[in-house]
Design a protein around this nucleic acid. Structure first.
Lengths: 138, 138
DNA sequence: AACTTTACTTTGACAATCAAACTATATAGC
DNA sequence: GCTATATAGTTTGATTGTCAAAGTAAAGTT
């Protein structure tokens, strides 16, 4: 098999395993995958407009509106007006939402530590470099 | 920031970007994300029992049953009895399903080529090694 | 000022999902 | 061999996630 094909399938396998892991983790908490994903994006990028959040999540703004309604209701997210564009609304995590984000992020961190435990320092460094470069190319 | 935290967030970002990409790709074809994911797993691992497939997809067998019904109806998947366990059913891709899988896999390959274009030979080799090791640790 | 675009919400229809109940088969313990 | 008990898959009812399309309001363009 060509090297690039092997790399391709390793990436797909990695993605699938992360996906399964996320499913399992979320199932144990009392929140849906879509909701925790929303919180993840806000937690790592900070407050943003509905449109931008919808684009990042890969869903329409119509879908996002009802999703945000639920998260506001649950106390994890707050809406506030955009300073300069009165059409826009900024959504952001509440304290409770930020707490949930950190909790979830800690689970991710523990996973990352687990799966990279067998890599040596140099490998980890190059992995980081590769990921950064790849993330820039999307 | 600690190196491991940086690595963690790069992994999450990579996962998110792959996820968005997959959403966008699937939207353009006439099939849902859940369905293409099912086809991906069967395409790369071959025929398997409902239970195993459900586990790999991170969904219940109840959900999978209706999903498979649709895919059988669309001609992408066929059910056949398990040779030795009469409770079990094997699901597998049809020729049409395999064609769809290859088409989708080619898109993944093109993406992989794109995002790794700026890596040199050594980096790509170590990336492959890291992914293999990480995939084994899940 | 009129037109067009953009941001968000609402609505109606459908797909995805789970939990729980159900059927059929397999396995374990006696 | 019987009788539990466990496992594989399906069905059902309820909920959630999703989109497309239509609606409202504000911003940008001409």
């Amino acid at each position: 098999m060509k090297e690039i094909e092997q790399l391709n399938h390793s990436i797909i396998e990695f993605y699938d395993k992360l996906s399964s892991w996320e499913h399992a983790v979320v199932r144990e908490q009392n929140i849906s995958l879509a909701q925790v994903h929303t919180i993840e994006v806000l937690g790592s990028h900070g407050a943003m407009r509905m449109k931008e959040l919808a684009d990042r999540l890969g869903i329409t703004t119509g879908t996002l509106t009802v999703q945000i309604d639920k998260l506001v209701n649950a106390g994890f997210i707050a809406r506030r007006p955009h300073e300069s564009d009165r059409r826009s609304i900024l959504v952001d995590l509440t304290d409770s939402g930020r707490h949930l984000y950190r909790e979830h992020d800690d689970l991710h961190l523990a996973l990352t530590q687990d799966i990279t435990a067998n890599l040596d320092k140099d490998q980890r460094k190059i992995l980081q470099l590769c990921l950064s470069k790849m993330n820039n190319e999307f």
